[in-house]
Design a protein around this nucleic acid. Structure first.
Length: 579
DNA sequence: GCCGTTTTCGGCCCGACTGTTTTCAGTCG
C-alpha cells in the first residue's frame, strides 16, 4: 500500500472521529500522522516489514499510530475506523464536502434524521427540515442546496495532476508487457485541461517483438488498483481505477494507425469536427484509423500525428491548443504562436516556508529550486491576517528582508525577499507600506471575505493594485477546482488597472487552483497584461507543479514574452528595481 | 494520540465571521 493511501485512510478516520465528537487533540494527532506518512520518502510498508527499522522514529508517529499503521497496511482499515463506519454511513464523509456543514452539524443531522444519501440530504434542505434542528436556519439550507449542486457537477471529474499521476503509473505498468512500445494518454489529459473526466490510454507495440493487443488488455484489467472492470473486448478495455473511481479506457492499436488514433482520441470534439470538415473539403475522410482519399479509399496518413496534419496542409498543432479557437486557421497559414515551455522558466515567485505554513526551510526551498535548474526564487510567506498560518507581522517582515540580504551569494539560487500579503476586506494591505518597502517582491492575495458583492470585491482589488509595493496579484480568482468557484468581480476593470500599474497576474500552478484559467488569461493578455507562473509551494516537492502552470499558460496561447519569470535573474532583478 | 520531560502528565494554534441566537456554537482558513 502506498503511503498516500495510508494517509488517506488516516485522514478519513480523523473525519469520522470529528463527526463522532472525539477529543480534538487526538484527531489532530491522526491528521499530523497522515501528513507525516504522506510526506515520508520511504514506504511505510517496508519500514514495518524491516525489523531494523521503527515507524515510531518518524516524527508524529508514536506507539498508538504505529499499531494503526500496522492494521491499515495489512487489512486496509483499523479498528476505530471500522467502529465509526458501523455508527455512520460512508456518505457522512461526503457530507463534509458540503460547504456550511461541518462535523458537528452532520452529527446533529444523523441524530435527528435517518438519512444516508446526498439525495436525502438535499430533500431535507428542500423541505425546510434542516431549520428545525438547533442552530440551523434558512440561510444554511440555501447554502447546502447550492453546495450540493456544485458537488454534483464535480462528481466524476478529477484534477489534472491526479489523472497524470495515474497515467504515469499505468504507463510504467503496461510497458512491462512484451513488445509494448508506446503508452500515451490522449483526451483532455493530453490537452492539459484543468480537470478531466476519464483517462484514455493508447498502447501500441512491435508485433515482431511479441506485441499482442490481448496481452495488453489482460494485463490492464489485472492492474492492482482496478476496482471494477466495465468492459474487456479485443481492442479496448475499461475499468474504474483507485478508490476514487477514475474511469480508464485502454485501447490497444496497431502501430500503423497510431498517429491517426492519437489525433482522434486527443480531441477536443470541436477541434476534430473542424479538422474533419477540412479533410472532407480536401477530398479526404479522417477517422481513428487514418486519413483516406474519398475516391479509391487509399490511405494517405496514419502512422504519425504530424503526418495527418501535414497531409491536411497544417502545421502540427500542440494538444493544448486543440479547442477550435482559431488554431486551425493559424496552422494553415503557418503562423502558430510560439508557446512558453517549462525549460524557459527561470524562477519561482511564490512559496512558503516553516516561518508560516510551509514544511521546509528557506535553504531547503532554495536547494530544491536549484535542483530544478532555476536561477532564482522569491520566498513569499503569509502575512499576519492568516493567523492560523502564523503569518508575518511588520517586525518579522523587516527581519526577514534583512535576513535575505545577509544571505546574498550564500545560496545555490538568488533569493528575493517576498511576501504573500493578504488583501484585507477594504482592499488595504495587511502589512504597513514601510515594512513592505523593505522587500523585493510582494504578491497580494485574497484569503478572506470571498463572498463580497461583485462591486465591493472589484473596489477591493482595485485598491490593492494601487498599493505601490504590490507587484503581482496572487491566485486572482480564488477558485478551488471541483470545490469552490472564484470570487465575483469585474475582471476587465481589474486587469486594466493591473496593466496600468504594472502589476502582474499570477498563474498559480498548485494543482487544485490553476488560477487564472485559460479563458481569463486570454482576455487579460488581450488587454496587455503580463503574468508570472508560480507554484505556491508549501513543500520542496511542490515546486514541480510548475509544469501544470505552464500547461495552463500554453492553453491560453501565452509565449515566453508574456511570462515575467522567463527572464534571467539579472533582468528580473532589474525589472523589480524599476518599481 | 504525540511529545517532552520539571519522567508520567500537561500542553498541543486560533481569529474572524456567519447565522443563529439573544450570548455563542460551528465553520473556515
Amino acid at each position: 500500500m502506498e503511503n498516500k493511501e495510508i494517509a488517506r485512510i488516516l485522514n478519513e478516520t480523523a473525519d469520522l472521529m470529528e463527526i463522532s465528537g472525539e477529543d480534538g487533540f487526538r484527531i489532530r494527532s491522526y491528521r499530523n500522522g497522515a501528513t507525516a506518512v504522506e510526506g515520508y520518502p520511504e514506504r511505510i510498508e517496508s519500514i514495518l516489514a524491516d525489523p531494523e527499522k521503527k515507524v515510531t522514529d518518524i516524527p508524529g508517529i508514536g506507539k498508538g499510530l504505529a499499531f494503526v499503521l500496522d492494521e491499515v497496511t495489512t487489512r486496509g482499515s483499523c479498528e476505530r475506523r471500522d467502529q465509526l463506519l458501523q455508527q455512520y454511513p460512508p456518505t457522512a464523509l461526503e457530507f463534509l464536502k458540503i460547504q456550511g456543514l461541518g462535523p458537528k452539524s452532520i452529527r446533529t443531522i444523523f441524530e435527528h434524521y435517518r438519512i444516508s444519501t446526498m439525495d436525502e440530504l438535499e430533500r431535507l434542505a428542500q423541505e425546510q427540515r434542516l431549520r428545525e434542528l438547533p442552530r440551523m436556519g434558512a440561510k444554511l439550507e440555501e447554502k447546502v442546496l447550492r453546495s450540493i449542486a456544485r458537488y454534483r457537477s464535480s462528481v466524476g471529474r478529477f484534477l489534472l495532476s491526479f489523472a497524470q499521476q495515474m497515467a504515469g503509473e499505468l504507463e510504467t505498468y503496461l510497458k512491462e508487457v512484451p513488445g509494448v512500445e508506446v503508452v500515451t494518454a490522449a483526451g483532455s489529459l493530453r490537452r492539459g485541461k484543468e480537470t478531466v473526466g476519464d483517462l484514455d490510454l493508447l498502447v501500441t507495440g512491435r508485433p515482431e517483438s511479441g506485441f499482442s493487443e490481448a496481452a495488453v488488455l489482460d494485463r490492464f484489467v489485472k492492474f492492482p488498483r482496478v476496482n471494477e472492470v466495465l468492459g474487456h473486448g479485443e481492442n479496448k478495455a475499461s475499468a474504474k481505477v483507485g478508490h476514487e473511481g477514475l474511469q480508464v479506457d485502454v485501447r490497444a492499436l496497431p502501430r500503423e494507425s497510431y498517429g491517426a488514433a492519437l489525433q482522434y482520441f486527443t480531441g477536443s470534439k470541436e477541434h476534430n469536427v473542424a479538422i474533419r470538415q477540412r479533410a472532407v473539403r480536401m477530398g479526404y475522410k479522417l477517422n481513428e484509423y487514418g486519413l483516406f482519399r474519398v475516391d479509391g479509399d487509399s490511405l494517405v496518413a496514419s502512422l504519425r500525428e504530424e503526418d495527418v496534419y501535414e497531409a491536411l496542409g497544417l502545421d502540427w498543432i500542440t494538444p493544448e491548443m486543440r479547442e477550435n479557437l482559431g488554431e486551425i486557421e493559424l496552422a494553415a497559414e503557418h503562423r502558430l504562436p510560439r508557446l512558453v515551455e517549462l525549460s524557459q522558466i527561470r524562477g519561482d515567485l511564490h512559496m512558503h516556508t516553516r516561518e508560516t505554513d510551509g514544511r521546509a526551510t528557506l535553504e531547503e526551498m532554495a536547494e530544491a529550486a536549484a535542483a530544478l535548474g532555476y536561477e532564482y526564487v522569491a520566498i513569499t510567506d503569509h502575512s499576519k491576517a492568516l493567523a492560523m498560518a502564523n503569518g508575518l507581522d511588520e517586525t518579522r517582515v523587516v527581519a526577514f528582508a534583512a535576513q535575505v540580504r545577509g544571505l546574498a551569494g550564500k545560496l545555490p539560487v538568488r533569493v528575493f525577499s517576498g511576501l504573500e500579503c493578504d488583501i484585507l476586506r477594504d482592499g488595504a494591505m495587511d502589512i504597513a507600506g514601510d515594512a513592505l518597502a523593505e522587500l523585493d517582491f510582494v504578491v497580494a492575495s485574497v484569503h478572506s471575505h470571498m463572498n463580497l458583492e461583485p462591486a465591493e470585491m472589484t473596489d477591493r482589488l482595485l485598491r490593492a493594485i494601487e498599493c505601490p509595493q504590490v507587484r503581482a496579484l496572487g491566485h486572482p480568482t480564488g477558485r478551488i477546482l471541483l470545490q469552490r468557484d472564484g470570487y465575483q468581480y469585474d475582471f476587465e476593470r481589474v486587469v486594466e488597472a493591473a496593466v496600468a500599474r504594472g502589476v502582474w497576474l499570477e498563474i498559480n500552478a498548485s494543482p487544485e487552483r490553476l488560477d487564472l484559467d485559460p479563458a481569463r488569461l486570454r482576455a487579460a493578455k488581450a488587454r496587455g497584461a503580463r503574468f508570472v507562473i508560480s507554484t505556491d509551494a508549501h513543500h520542496p516537492k511542490h515546486l514541480a507543479h510548475m509544469r501544470l502552470g505552464v500547461t495552463v499558460a500554453r492553453r491560453a496561447w501565452l509565449g515566453p514574452e508574456d511570462i515575467v519569470n522567463t527572464l534571467p535573474a539579472e533582468q528580473f532583478a532589474a525589472v523589480l528595481e524599476r518599481g
